[in-house]
Design a binder for these strands. Structure first.
Length: 506
RNA sequence: GGCCCGUUCGUCUAAGGGUUAGGACACCACCCUUUCACGGUGGUGAUACGAGUUCGAAUCUCGUACGGGCUACCA
């Protein structure tokens, strides 16, 4: 048997991809790349009633933005297709039938109403949600309670039915989770999960086992919410393909919101994104904001996700993708859930913006500026501006505030910030300063500052009291990089014009 | 209710029997800067509780409490 590392991300295309989903992709990807293996994406679309237009496309767009490209998928091809479970429909039934034949599963003819009635009838205070398990399966309509003749007749008549796994009554199923160690379950406490639905589609339980086998998956990673159904999957592996061929499992801790499992509602309520990219629900028309549109760099997004549940044991927090691949190990993934901290997420982004080269920021900033009505005609200037202001930008849109005025005359001047302390002396200072500027031969921040301070001393005014007015003149408000740097990049002509115009307004 | 997983500063975490329990985010103070940041220095702040094992426990065991997940012909 091939020992090649092969891992998969198996999303259900029902909506936007949230934080936890992307982290699952990331850990899969890191593990695969670290071990020279394959990372594939398999679309789990066996529930046709939950089909959402565009969701599959969205998933791949998200992976592309993150730079987590699969080796095999619907879009990338591969030798283990189809990579969409709905297209593999025909392959599942035989396995379910085989299980029935071997006595590990059975046909069940109960209608949805029957099931509802069962849940109602058996509901007690001590058992608020009765399960279809060994204690009640003999009270239902299935091939265990029906004679074989009756069963055959029903099947021949095309009666709607499902196939359920017959959980053993007194077995302990255990497996070793790469993160949690040994996990045990008593089979008598697990219900008879449906394996094959009435429409002929497999449930997740059957599909995940069959496809992991067919696709030769070596390690199966998923979120902790799957842990309770693990015994079903272990048993299916045992019955169908042999425990010795089963992939190694790891269940990732959940990413929690302020109130437990993170939901997109939390994002709306607490003001931070939950999805990787904007998701526009075609059914409700509701738009859910994504990290991308909020102004996160993919490198930062991945970095913060990687650290949410994993660390390399040292004190490093900023990791490039290459470093993550090199240092990642499943053993160092935490077993406890992690509460998402948006403040820290922003810190990661800020660090990445500071760390990023001007070149990698340029097109994004340019787009953002143009979206805000600022046209950049001088790319060289833009590059200088980005270099100058990036340290004060936490999210990409911050660039708009900190750099628009380099390309566009401020629409309004914060006159109120100046007026209270404005006087004729100061006005006179700027009139003279303007004259000096016009004859200046050296145009750079240091020279500008020197002559500014010289003149201030001459006029007996504290330079500090003149800097804020100067800033308002050039920028319009109390923000932006050091004022003399601004003047330098603005150039002589523009600087002089802005001072003169402002003098009229003050 | 049952089952499963978990529990170190507010948050993310380090410390795999012996440390003044370390770092980061956030917060506070000071410095730098008379825009705001960046940066620098310092500070507040945690082993849920109770037993046990041990010379010695945040670390191992058990119990309790608390938190989370699952409990669909959804994934």
């Amino acid at each position: 048997m091939s020992k090649k590392v092969r891992v998969r991300f198996a999303p259900s295309p029902t909506g936007g991809l949230h934080l936890g989903g992307v982290r699952t992709v990331l850990y899969n990807y890191l593990f695969a790349k670290k071990h020279g293996g394959d990372f594939l994406v398999r679309i789990e679309d066996t529930d046709q009633s939950r089909y959402v237009a565009g969701a599959e496309e969205y998933i791949f767009d998200t992976l592309k933005w993150c730079g987590l490209e699969p080796d095999e998928s619907v879009q990338h091809g591969g030798n283990y297709g189809p990579y969409r479970q709905s297209e593999r429909k025909e392959s599942y039934r035989q396995y379910a039938e085989q299980l029935v034949k071997d006595g590990y599963a059975y046909y069940a003819f109960d209608t949805p109403e029957d099931l509802e009635k069962m849940r109602h009838d058996f509901k007690t205070d001590n058992n608020p949600s009765p399960q279809y398990d060994h204690t009640i399966r003999m009270k239902m309509r299935n091939s265990l309670t029906l004679s074989s003749d009756e069963t055959q007749k029903l099947l021949a008549a095309g009666t709607r039915h499902v196939i359920r796994i017959k959980m053993p009554e007194n077995e302990t199923v255990s497996f070793t989770d790469m993160i949690r160690g040994e996990v045990k379950f008593e089979t008598s406490l697990v219900d008879d999960k449906v394996l094959l639905k009435a429409d002929g589609m497999p449930t997740y339980h059957l599909a995940v086992v069959v496809d992991d086998h067919l696709m030769e998956i070596s390690h199966a990673f998923r979120g902790e919410e799957w842990l309770p159904s693990a015994p079903v999957h272990i048993l299916l592996w045992k019955y169908l393909f042999g425990l010795e061929n089963m992939p190694q499992w790891a269940h990732f801790p959940l990413i929690l919101g302020p109130n437990g499992k993170l939901s997109k509602r939390d994002g709306a309520k607490y003001g931070f994104p939950v999805f990787a990219m904007n998701w526009n629900d075609p059914k409700t028309g509701e738009l859910t904001e994504g990290f991308k549109e909020k102004g996160f760099l993919p490198e930062a997004f991945l970095n913060l996700l990687a650290l949410l549940g994993w660390n390399d044991g040292g004190e490093q927090e900023i990791f490039s993708m290459e470093e993550l691949i090199e240092k990642f190990s499943m053993e160092r993934v935490h077993s406890a859930g992690a509460k998402f901290d948006y403040e820290k997420a922003k810190w990661f982004n800020h660090e990445w913006i500071k760390k990023s080269g001007v070149g990698s920021l340029e097109s994004g900033v340019k787009t953002l500026l143009s979206q805000n009505g600022v046209t950049v005609s001088d790319d060289v200037l833009l590059e200088k501006v980005i270099e100058l202001v990036k340290d004060r930008c936490t999210l990409l849109p911050d660039f708009v505030q900190h750099s628009s005025f380099f390309f566009k005359v401020p629409e309004t001047l914060d006159v109120d910030a100046v007026k209270p302390k404005w006087n004729e002396d100061k006005k006179n200072f700027f009139v003279v300063y303007t004259e000096k500027l016009q004859t200046a031969t050296e145009w750079n921040a240091i020279e500008l500052e020197n002559s500014f301070k010289e003149l201030a001393t001459e006029k007996n005014i504290k330079p500090g009291e003149l800097q804020l007015p100067f800033r308002i003149m050039l920028v319009g408000g109390k923000f932006g990089p050091p004022v003399f740097n601004i003047a330098e990049l603005l150039g002589k002509e523009e600087t002089v014009i802005r001072i003169k115009n402002a003098l009229l307004a003050f």
